Amino acid sequence: MKIRLMLLAATSLMIASCDTAKENANAVSPEAATSADSAGDEEAIRGQVARWLDLIKAKDAAAIAQMYTEDGAFMPPNAPIGKGHAAIEQNWAGMMATPGFDLNFAPEAIIVSSSGDMALDRGTYRLTVAPDGKEQVDTGKYVVVWRKVEGEWKAAADIINSDLPPGGG
């Protein structure tokens, strides 16, 4: 009788552990869930980058400014920091008014925080202007810190700096 009870207990434990293993196999680990969310967030940010580039082509400084958080900051080279939508719009409008203005940029890396509410976008840009009728090209790098606001990714801080030596030449 004791052997039968022991076998019954052992069998019950084995069945219970099999059910637990099956549940664990079907469960999504926190790391996998974060990875899936992170990939979706990265895609959303890439979508924002594409939208931004379209707005640059359209020279729509007002819409570009709305891509920033309320307290966002734009830090272009050789110009004062633009804080808030009005100043950011003014900075972008001034840049885009330069004759021959053309800007393209591309992320090299987008890293989403584990909390899923902030991200880092690091990349390169190519800027062309012709203020005196002669085309000038600048290449450089940028960093945008994105923050998720009410489910939408917005630029909280945006800094650009040139690869050219001081003096532009």
Rank of each mutant, 00 (worst) to 15 (best):
A25E: 07
I45D: 12
P30G: 02
A36G: 01
Q48P: 04
A36S: 09
E23G: 00
A16M: 07
T34V: 02
A25Y: 11
L13T: 06
R51Y: 06
T34L: 13
D19I: 14
D19H: 15
A32S: 07
A21L: 14
C18V: 14
E43W: 04
N24L: 13
A32Y: 03
G47T: 09
G47I: 09
D41S: 15
A16Q: 06
P30M: 04
I45N: 09
I56D: 06
A16Y: 04
I56Y: 13
L13W: 07
K57W: 06
V49G: 03
A36K: 13
K22E: 10
A36C: 01
S17T: 13
E23A: 11
L53N: 09
C18K: 05
L53R: 15
T20V: 14
D54L: 06
N24R: 15
Q48C: 09
S12D: 00
G47N: 12
A32K: 07
P30K: 02
G40R: 08
I45E: 10
A32R: 06
S38E: 11
T20I: 14
V28M: 13
R46A: 05
R46L: 13
R51N: 11
K59I: 02
V28A: 11
A25K: 12
Q48E: 10
A39N: 11
A27P: 05
A25Q: 08
N24C: 00
